[in-house]
Design a protein around this nucleic acid. Sequence first.
DNA 1: CGTCGCGTTGACAAGGTTCAAATTTGGTGG
DNA 2: CCACCAAATTTGAACCTTGTCAACGCGACG
Lengths: 221, 221
Amino acid sequence: MLVRTNAAICHSDGDQLHALAGGQLLSSEFKYRRGMEIFGEGEEADYAYQILSGAVRTYKLLSDGRRQINSFHLPGDMFGLENGASHRFTADAVVETSVRIMKRNSLVNVMASRMTGAGSLLRLVTRNLEHAEMHMLLLGRKTALERVAAFLLEMDDRLMHPGVLVLPMSRRDIADYLGVTLETVSRALSILKDEGLLHFDGPTQRRIVLRDRVKLGQLEA
Amino acid sequence: MLVRTNAAICHSDGDQLHALAGGQLLSSEFKYRRGMEIFGEGEEADYAYQILSGAVRTYKLLSDGRRQINSFHLPGDMFGLENGASHRFTADAVVETSVRIMKRNSLVNVMASRMTGAGSLLRLVTRNLEHAEMHMLLLGRKTALERVAAFLLEMDDRLMHPGVLVLPMSRRDIADYLGVTLETVSRALSILKDEGLLHFDGPTQRRIVLRDRVKLGQLEA
DNA sequence: CGTCGCGTTGACAAGGTTCAAATTTGGTGG
DNA sequence: CCACCAAATTTGAACCTTGTCAACGCGACG
């Protein structure tokens, strides 16, 4: 499934980006505490970001406060690179997060000077687009249970199928990503637990063990 | 609103793409009758397409037939350009449509040889991404009435605010674009008509006159 | 005309939201 | 280490928007 293989590739490409940048690129490390905003929608887009550790959510808001999270970014992922002058969405740290910041101009210059660079940069953007397309299918056409199953499998893939899936984000974050309410996410997880497709690891509800990825995959669509 | 200004720019960029290609680019014209498939999900992506006249829908399907239309493409718009070897979605003609077809390789080559080309190509992709982001907000967080209002305003903008909005697509297409059922689209349009925000031009229900774009804009979010 | 595709409308069902309360967890300070 | 509190999560019940199923109307076209 595209959504799921997507992330792993993203990861390697993020590193590739850094390699590309090599010494030529002005880059520095920066840390954000949980909940801190990295940039806001409409702000000037002078930098691009790559996650070293932690997790970032990017989202849009409606005037009445409804939020739609476009995607979660995990270590290795790049985000915030824009063509225009300003950011099209808000980004903030889900948990304590460390990012590499690159000046946009220097990044674009490096790309310009290298054929392969242009292709690679384009590929990074296309990958985001690919993810967006899968997510539109989910948001437009999947049921709550299908959405949660897809979410778990996406995270599982992006974290390279760990034994225990440690979610950095809250139920509300998941809900705003999947286009449902947090109660619905919670209920769906309970159903999956009752049916034995997953169970919680320890007392916390953010550590999840996927017991049957095949059945989850069937649920997903 | 981004969604709405988006298309006009797309339009000009489509032409810019052609200018860029100049004589160097192998391109030929092709016509599709309504309902004909231009390419299918998973097929090899050897060509990129630009619409000369008509309308195209690009969409994904779930195994049980549920369809999510990612976007409608109108004259000037480009679609089908991929990084990978295969198309990520299906594209077919909504109405009788004429497109310019460009070989992907020659397009990429032209781009590679020109700095500005790389930027422009990147911009085309980013524009699709921008649209996807706005659409995710719509699909994830807007009510049926808000979706339909947004759709009308988007089409209105993309067709440059004509006196009469002539929709090339059916209610089902609109529904699959907005992530609702065709009945819901129909009901929403009836409500907007009853409230005097629009009326149908003539007997056909595809010719719509927007009577109050301001109120529609307030509804949209 | 009759039929067919498209669109509208109505009645009812259902999935998801809302509101509310109970329960658990994680952090904080003794 | 334990007690306590705020935040997060779960669960329940009523409600509501939207989906489903079905009937009907209308125009295009043979």
